[in-house]
Simulated assay, not measured.
Amino acid sequence: MYALLICIGFIYIYPILYMVSQSFMTLDDLLDSSINWIPSKLNLDNYKQAAQSMDFWKSFGQSIIIAGAPTLCNLLSCSVIGYGLARFEFPGKKVVLGIILFTFILPSQITMIPTYVLYSNMGILGTIWSFVLPALLGMGINAPIFILIFWQFFRQVPKVLIEAAQIDGAGYLKSFFKISLPSASPAIITVSLFSFVWYWNESYLTQMYVSGVTTKSGWSSLVIKLGDFASNYSDYAQTATTAVTSINESINMAGTMLSILPLLVMYFVLQRYFVESIDRTGITGE
């Protein structure tokens, strides 16, 4: 079993190790066939030039906003929708669940053009509201699966807790915020991590709705900067006051590493909580 896990892990870790190794190499190391993994020296200029060409700190801050704001909205809206579906019976409930599943299966490419026209008529193209507003209404990126996660979790919360709170005079909202939501920390952590990563890695929709296709809004992200890395580096090399190395594989790898580094740090910090949240979603109840 350990041998199988090591083989599977190597498939995922190998590209990252290769990227890290290549990102620290100089041009001489790249041309030297005897150097494959360990560079002759750690060349930090690759990261410095890549960060300056990507305008790293500004793009990093905007990436946090672009991914973080819709994630918070997804948590609020999807938890409320999931709680309503789990705790209340109403006509057409199965139809609503079916529609939610259908919207998750429906490819985003089909609704992309109508959504673009809608956002254009609403005047929110080129603003963060094109991500925030749908997330507030439970229609963010992959929001249906978040609704189903909360729905499945709230179904497992013992009904006696809700009934006891109602006997003590708590209403529906108070029961939700005081009883159900605090116990839903595993689902909250899972949804937060998935939503943040999906918004962070989404480049096409971000460039279409937030950054703007016809008009530039000033909003960008590290993933978008990475997609235009060659042209951005060319512009940086023309305006740089100091000597700049011509773009090569090491600088490309450094730029790629900078774009995924925040997610790697976040995963290592939240890994224990994420694993515990997955384990704790198996609680028993009525």
Rank of each mutant, 00 (worst) to 15 (best):
T103H: 12
T256G: 15
L118H: 14
F90R: 03
E202C: 12
L258G: 06
G82A: 05
L31W: 05
S183A: 04
I145D: 00
Q22V: 15
S192K: 04
A230G: 02
T26D: 15
I11E: 11
S183R: 06
S175E: 02
S192T: 12
L136W: 00
G171Y: 02
L97V: 13
V20M: 12
T245K: 11
M266H: 02
L42W: 15
W219M: 04
P186T: 02
P91I: 04
I6A: 14
A86L: 05
G255D: 08
A50I: 14
K174V: 10
S180Y: 02
A164E: 11
K93T: 10
S180E: 07
D235W: 10
Y204A: 05
S259W: 08
V96L: 12
F268A: 09
F56L: 01
V96A: 09
L30S: 12
D168K: 06
I66V: 13
I147A: 13
F102S: 14
I189P: 04
F102Q: 11
S277V: 00
P107K: 14
L161M: 07
L106H: 10
D55L: 01
A135P: 03
A187C: 01
Y18H: 10
A143K: 07
N43L: 11
F88T: 01
V269W: 06
V117C: 06
I113V: 15
F24G: 04
Y18W: 12
P15T: 03
N232D: 13
L161G: 03
A187V: 00
F229A: 13
T284E: 13
K93H: 05
I167D: 11
E163C: 01
A67W: 06
A51P: 15
I99M: 13
